[in-house]
């Protein structure tokens, strides 16, 4: 939304930069854990539908693996495209 604010940060003293980078680290940890949770939820929903046994059968396990790998590849591709668009928007100013 407001990119101008990031410019202001250069004026801040060293301790504030440390605080900012700690904040970014914390957000990244939270985001990774949320991604993990939502990936499990998605692949479970897409791959597991029978509850006659209490362990995953071979087919379900394969499905979960492919689902997770496919989602991660998808996520990386989206990340690249997203970065390009963000850069384009930044240089437009």
């Amino acid at each position: 939304m407001d990119k101008s604010m990031l410019g202001d940060l250069d004026n801040l003293p060293e301790e504030d930069k440390v605080r900012m980078s700690t904040m970014i680290d914390q957000l990244q940890i939270r985001d990774s854990l949320r991604m993990y949770n939502s990936l499990v939820e998605r692949c479970f929903n897409d791959c597991v539908d029978s509850f006659r046994r209490k362990t995953l059968d071979k087919q379900e396990e394969t499905c979960v693996r492919r689902c997770a790998e496919k989602f991660l590849k998808h996520s990386m591709r989206v990340g690249m495209r997203f970065a390009e668009l963000n850069q384009g928007a930044a240089t437009q100013d």
């Binding site: 499990v40 692949c43 379900e60 693996r65 991660l72």
Partner: peptide, 14 residues
């Protein structure tokens, strides 16, 4: 039980 296994499986992959 199966959800737990999927959590572990995806955790290994990540």
């Amino acid at each position: 039980s199966k959800y737990w296994q999927v959590t572990n499986l995806v955790g290994q992959l990540l």
